[in-house]
């Protein structure tokens, strides 16, 4: 009995959808725009976060040690630094590594080559590269390195402060997010109003049917269901349309932002794919809830049962 009623309700909903087809299309279109702007919001969020992560990855403190320091002393310093709770890791680069790097860098510079050849032995010291767990820990780590005892073995410190870049990314991202959020909210409000009106008009076009339904003993939920279902259907269509629109757009965007991330393994499309059910499920659920609520309000206002 219930299943029969349900399938009948779905058929009535489809018929009603068809009867006001232009209105239905307009409704779907507005919900579609809402979803697209919400997806923009998600994409900007993801891209900004990943960009910041990439920049953060590049931040470190390099300590250039004097050339004549014993290996055991360096190892001791390395262990000491590693035991620091703020330090994520410490990478050791031997003098030989550094010399090889330096030579590789200046392979075309005859003068440097000559000078190096004229020296006996390796003029370079070892390097320790420290990565902190958190960006804000770098100042603390730098302060511990100010220790006068350490000063005797450290020749030079180099801290690449990318904080400015991070702040810039944060600022740009939050500005973009604010604009898109505002647009999304406006679209959500328009969607609610449109769904409300669509249902209202659907009720008016079906006035005769509704009156007869009541007369022949259709239950209230049976009369209401097609209208609610119709609005849910519009949400579903809009969601599918948004998917077909967003994915090509993402791959287009990927072409541009891919360069920024360079070697870093970042792909906006794989992010959307990995979180497919979360992203689209939440949107579908959200739009269904919004539509169900606004159509129910319209029904309770205009459908006197």
């Amino acid at each position: 009995m219930f299943l029969h009623a349900l399938s009948r309700g779905i058929i009535f909903a489809l018929q009603s959808f068809w009867r006001n087809v232009w209105l239905s299309i307009a409704t779907i279109f507005v919900i579609f725009l809402t979803l697209v702007s919400v997806n923009f919001l998600i994409a900007v969020n993801v891209i900004a976060d990943s960009a910041i992560n990439v920049v953060k990855e590049r931040i470190d403190v390099s300590i250039y040690l004097k050339p004549d320091i014993q290996e055991s002393k360096i190892a001791e310093l390395k262990t000491r630094l590693e035991s620091d709770s703020q330090v994520k890791n410490v990478v050791y680069r031997s003098p030989a590594d550094n010399l090889a790097d330096f030579k590789a860098k200046h392979v075309n510079d005859e003068k440097i080559k000559e000078t190096l050849d004229s020296l006996n032995g390796n003029p370079m010291g070892a390097t320790l590269i420290i990565k902190a767990k958190n960006l804000k820990d770098y100042p603390v780590i730098l302060r511990t390195l100010e220790d006068p005892i350490l000063n005797e073995i450290i020749e030079e410190k180099n801290y690449d402060d990318n904080q400015l870049v991070i702040d810039r990314i944060n600022l740009i991202a939050s500005n973009i997010k604010r604009v898109i959020l505002a647009i999304s909210i406006i679209f959500i409000i328009i969607s609610i109003l449109i769904v409300f009106n669509t249902v209202r008009i659907a009720i008016f076009t079906h006035q005769n049917e509704i009156a007869i339904m009541k007369l022949v003993g259709a239950s209230n939920w049976f009369i209401r269901f097609p209208f609610v279902f119709e609005s849910i259907l519009a949400g579903l269509f809009a969601c599918i349309l948004a998917m077909f629109f967003i994915y090509p757009l993402l791959s287009f965007t990927q072409g541009y932002i891919g360069g920024f991330f360079g070697g870093a393994d970042f792909n906006i499309i794989s992010y959307f794919n990995a979180n497919f059910f979360l992203i689209w499920g939440a949107q579908l659920l959200g739009i269904i809830v919004i539509n169900a609520i606004s159509s129910s309000i319209a029904l309770s206002k205009y459908l006197k049962v």
Binding site: F2, H4, A5, R8, V216, A218
Partner: peptide, 11 residues
Amino acid sequence: AFALQVSGAPR
């Protein structure tokens, strides 16, 4: 048939 449909009668 409409009167039966709305009360969920089978086809």
